[in-house]
Design a protein around this nucleic acid. Sequence first.
DNA 1: TCGGATTTCTCCTGTTTTGTATAACATATC
DNA 2: GATATGTTATACAAAACAGGAGAAATCCGA
Lengths: 112, 112
Amino acid sequence: MAIDRFLGEFEQVVLLAVAQLGEDGYGTTIRREIERRTARGVSVGAVYATLARLEEKGFVTSWYGESTAKRGGRSKRHYRLEPAGAEALESTRAMLDRMWDGVDLGTRPGRA
Amino acid sequence: MAIDRFLGEFEQVVLLAVAQLGEDGYGTTIRREIERRTARGVSVGAVYATLARLEEKGFVTSWYGESTAKRGGRSKRHYRLEPAGAEALESTRAMLDRMWDGVDLGTRPGRA
DNA sequence: TCGGATTTCTCCTGTTTTGTATAACATATC
DNA sequence: GATATGTTATACAAAACAGGAGAAATCCGA
């Protein structure tokens, strides 16, 4: 694994999407949420593969819901953020914040 | 490569260390800076490999300085953050911020 | 003052984890 | 069945790591 307690870039993004969606999170919505917020294309496979790894590490858990009465209403696999995942998210963010602390990217108009 | 315009987790950390150190940044100090701020052990090889990748992408440039009058004062390879690197740093951070926006990790005492 | 011991740093090699795409498979509606 | 919505399988490239070998420069004892 990366180092230890920190999340990789995409892992972090996927985990955050799971956090955003709560009980409504499943493959397709998670993917859409990522695309919506980051304005970048994401392949289906990338999402599922990452989700599987995240589950393996205990950061999320999943369960199959009932199939909806919609065309092609195959039963969905829902994902939920687990405490360990929330913790990983927090420590990764805290670590990044510490690295950013005091950085000034050359008086450009950007962020404070 | 990761996706496109975004930095991997460790790339981001290394690049930030370079930004922090300015002209004083070279392999060993960069490594130390990372260990100091993140409280995690980092292998030498990981740092140099990442630095090489970063340079290949045009995010940093390097030059060899003169050797100092110190025991083992071998000439060092210095690194400097380039505009493209600063940009990558910013867009990665902005993207992550957008993903975090609105996330509440369950009323835990942690961050706001 | 020579030459090895010592220190500081860089680079090479190999491996594991992540990140990603493509396509096949499953299941419900019509 | 044809078609829409979801999930899984498979494969691979890139990124993250570890460790030790190798280089360069100084220090120091005889």
